[in-house]
Design a protein around this nucleic acid. Structure first.
Lengths: 338, 338
DNA sequence: ATTTCTCAGTTAAACGTTTAACTTGATTTC
DNA sequence: GAAATCAAGTTAAACGTTTAACTGAGAAAT
């Protein structure tokens, strides 16, 4: 079996406390003793047991990462990338990330993620929109909680957000600069802060350019921003409006769906209609034409979330701290000068 | 703070041992006592501490999951899905999966995954090809080890594999049935058992159909089966061979690359050339035309790996046990009758 | 020459469980 | 009616660490 601190102490002829102090680089230990102990540690390939450490320190070195099923299973990798960013950063700090998904329709009597109940995490990162009831229940455990890509307006949790307003402005300006005036916006549930803010950016850009806001060009009644709903939204919109020359979709999935609708109905992209998405989910490049979009640095979101968690755990006052991650316009082939 | 077993014992006026026995459903406890204790447990929302359990049981309830960077970062989600399958299954058994990536060029003096060193996993699942030196080093720790989608020919580890030969046959037969005779195979490193076996399936199918094997139609010198190499492989192949009417790519990424090459060079798919891939990585549907492929049940691979791990941990003799997961032909639009 | 300090460690309690071994009182068995 | 069995618990050790409190020897201060 693996060596324990006892084995090391025995072989180095010191007490286990000394070994522990050496490991923690305590300066109460003389250089010679330290050297001797270190040597034995190497010989025995000793590594402290995490279970034992966790128990005595009342910490776990784990961070929980919660996602809804929907988000995890999304075809276009978005939240998985955020998770990856968190995992990368965690590794450097000696932490583990415990990933779990919860049902999108999580309700009162569904169980909480196990790692919360059995106290195997020091904090929890919640990515994307999750049911409010879940948050309420988790809150009771007084664990540090951090949100990524989602906010609760009334609460004061630290949060890492995409600069959605700026992204909305960037996207819409790009279309305006290409001479478009009849610009549609398609989005899912407008209650979702990200979608809401992307629309805000859209509105602000139009306003700045002195273009009149046309409510008929805005479609935000889809339940969920996926391809199918993008397809349907485009259908509704183009049935009623003939003059639309550009579409800003609230994310790439909807943009892809809209593009399919247009292709299926004899419009060509970007000759007849320009399309811009949001997220930059890699598959964009495979499309024909490749999708112009707003790049969201997904890995960075995850990284920042973990850093913020570390701050919280170090007891810095991070109440309500908000980190805005900037986005970037990626011009490909789905948009074109009018 | 969270309630401990002591709190429960105190409040229920029994010893902590009794509480523990109740939790474990030991029949030495009378129904009344049991009921009383259970009630207090509920009242205090008591859940046993995982750290403490881990320490005393010398288990961790964690399984390590190792992937190379390359594999994790692949654009088309493949290994991430396998991970997901493992995670789903683990949740049901009360286990956590600790994911970590290692450098694809892992070498002698890179550190081992932390969870191995600090003994925070009961076993390790290795997905996809990893450097042999890493396996050797892990082996020293005598942890149960399971492979997914990769085998070492000389070793005797339990393993979960795709039925690659069958897949190769399925794919090639599909092309043969569509009247193709000049069928190319493009693949990456032929040392990789999966690619090797897909090629074997290809050869066997040709043989069964009485079609002569033409080495000029086989390209397996790419270092890594990604899009770029698929593009390049197609280029090499089509420069030298005019009569190829169908391509079987060892995976979808290479198929996508090949398709791009063909498009860029005036071939139309599937009119001029049929293409079939392998994996079925979701983005296939977005392609134009959507890619015919061999579906690999990725989630199942992960699930099976976890189940196998549970068997191993229960000490069943699983030495060298091999699970072959079947595949399925998915006909879309990139293949066509000659 | 005491007393006080500092150095370099050691001792022992604590973290929250599990579980083998023990106890105690009641019931069977012959 | 004494011995054996049984039922329903309790006691205490163990898991592998960390760390506050202690110790003992030599140096410095008075």
């Amino acid at each position: 079996m693996a060596a324990t601190i006892k084995d090391v102490a025995l072989k180095a002829k010191v007490s286990i406390a000394t070994v522990s102090l050496v490991i923690h680089n305590n300066n109460r230990i003389s250089p010679e003793t330290k050297k001797k102990v270190l040597k034995v540690i190497k010989q025995l390939d000793y590594h402290p047991s995490k279970s034992a450490r966790d128990l005595v320190s009342q910490k776990t070195g784990n961070i929980g990462f919660i996602l809804t099923d929907d988000h995890f299973l999304r075809t276009e990798p978005f939240y998985t990338r955020i998770f990856l960013g968190t995992e990368f950063e965690a590794r450097d700090s000696g932490f583990y990330i415990l990933l779990t998904t919860v049902a999108s329709d999580y309700s009162e009597n569904d169980p909480l993620p196990r790692f919360i109940l059995d106290r195997s995490v020091d904090g929890v990162i919640i990515a994307g929109k999750v049911p409010h009831i879940l948050i309420d229940r988790i809150a009771k455990y007084k664990l540090p909680l951090i949100f990524v890509d989602y906010v609760l307006d009334n609460e004061e949790y630290p949060v890492v957000l995409i600069d959605n307003i700026q992204g909305g402005i960037l996207a819409t300006n790009h279309l305006i600069e290409n001479g478009h005036k009849n610009i549609a916006f398609i989005g899912g549930d407008i209650q979702h802060p990200s979608i809401y803010n992307r629309l805000m950016g859209y509105s602000r850009a139009l306003e700045n350019a002195g273009i009149k806001h046309n409510d008929k060009y805005i479609h935000t009644t889809s339940p969920y921003p996926d391809r199918q709903n993008g397809y349907d939204a485009a259908k509704t919109l183009f049935k009623k409006n003939k003059y639309i020359t550009a579409v800003f979709a609230c994310n790439d999935a909807m943009a892809i769906g809209a593009m399919h609708f247009l292709k299926d109905n004899g419009y060509s992209v970007p000759q007849d209609v320009s399309i811009i998405g949001f997220d930059d989910v890699e598959v964009d490049l495979l499309l024909d034409p490749p999708l112009t979009t707003i790049r969201v640095p997904k890995i960075d979101l995850g990284t920042e979330a973990f850093r913020l968690m570390m701050e919280v755990l170090k007891n810095k006052n991070t109440n309500g701290k908000k980190i805005l991650v900037p986005v970037e316009l990626i011009i490909r082939k789905s948009t074109k000068k009018l």
